[in-house]
């Protein structure tokens, strides 16, 4: 970090890139889901149109200061998660602000947005919002358990809490990836990944028709625009995190795109061919097999 302004410029540049990447990913996923249904589906640039539309809504009603801050927290969570991770390993300008203890910070930031959102949505006073929040937080909490266990196993394996060092240890071919060197932790992490990517079978909390859209029931116009933008950030940031942790990171942008896209398609394809779990079922599912796998992964490196 020799020059502050250069670093800032690089951070904004990588944010811009990752934002567009996330938006396009969203469009591609709409298209894929539609094709699986046998439909044509919206155009790939539809998320951009939606974003412009919600930003162009002329009136917005705030229910109070926390309601206003909810999307801000959420946005901060997404950007924070992204900015404290090395995006492209070894690159000068996609290194972001990663530092030695960033793994803990990243785990915190995954949860941070959800909590801020919960506070904001609860102030809207709509009865469906707390319902969605309750389900969403339960879902995130329970998928966090196997993920945290997998992360602990990785930290024990590599003896570090820095994502950069974990990525560095995986360089030099597919045999060095954590997917090969630590398959049990990877299994637990990927099962947690399904729960965190908000696709079926684990998307009850934002089920659009059964409970009207979950937490953001009352959010509209610009508030919703920030949430949509955050969804692009958050999804790609989570993808990059999992790529860094288990699949050897990326040394250039094509590899980054290829790996994250494949990872996302894993969640999407599991989603489109599976029905939706109820919350009780998904909690039970998470605390059985994935958690057990995570515990085994931790135990393997404890003894």
């Amino acid at each position: 970090m020799d020059n502050f302004w250069t670093t800032l410029l690089y951070a904004f540049l990588s944010m811009f890139l990752i934002f567009n990447y996330g938006m396009l990913l969203g469009g591609v996923v709409y298209k894929i889901i539609a094709r699986v249904h046998g439909r044509f589906g919206p155009p790939v640039w539809q998320p951009y149109v939606n974003l412009v539309k919600v930003m162009g809504v002329r009136t917005a009603i705030s229910h109070g200061i926390m309601f206003w801050l909810g999307p801000v927290f959420r946005f901060a969570g997404g950007i924070g998660l992204f900015l404290f991770m090395p995006v492209v390993f070894g690159s000068v300008w996609m290194q972001n602000f990663s530092f030695s203890g960033d793994l803990l910070l990243v785990i915190y930031f995954i949860f941070f947005g959800q909590l801020g959102m919960a506070l904001g949505a609860a102030e809207s006073g709509h009865p469906y919002s707390p319902m969605g929040i309750m389900r969403g937080l339960a879902q995130v909490t329970v998928s966090e358990v196997p993920f945290a266990l997998a992360v602990i196993a990785l930290a024990a394996q590599h003896g570090t809490l820095s994502i950069t060092e974990i990525v560095a240890a995986q360089q030099g071919g597919i045999a060095n990836w954590n997917m090969i060197t630590n398959p049990v932790a990877t299994l637990a992490g990927m099962m947690a990944f399904l729960g965190m990517m908000m696709h079926a079978p684990f998307n009850l909390h934002l089920a659009p028709q059964e409970i009207p859209v979950g937490p953001p029931t009352e959010y509209h116009s610009n508030f919703l625009g920030y949430m949509q933008a955050n969804r692009a950030f958050f999804a790609s940031a989570k993808l990059i995190l999992f790529m860094n942790l288990f699949f050897g990171g990326a040394t250039n942008i094509p590899v980054l795109v290829g790996k994250t896209f494949t990872l996302y398609m894993f969640a999407v394809f599991v989603g489109v061919v599976n029905p939706r779990f109820t919350l009780e079922n998904s909690i039970r599912w998470f605390i059985r097999i994935p958690t057990a796998t995570g515990i085994i992964a931790v135990l393997l490196y404890t003894f």
């Binding site: 439909r39 044509f40 589906g41 919206p42 939606n50 809504v57 659009p208 028709q209 859209v213 509209h220």
Partner: peptide, 22 residues
């Protein structure tokens, strides 16, 4: 919404809450 007519190709989507729909 079904495969036969598929209004999602025109960018039309159902929203369950009046706040978000136009």
């Amino acid at each position: 919404y079904t495969a036969r007519y598929d209004i999602s190709r025109y960018g039309i989507a159902p929203r369950p809450t009046p706040r978000q729909s136009n």
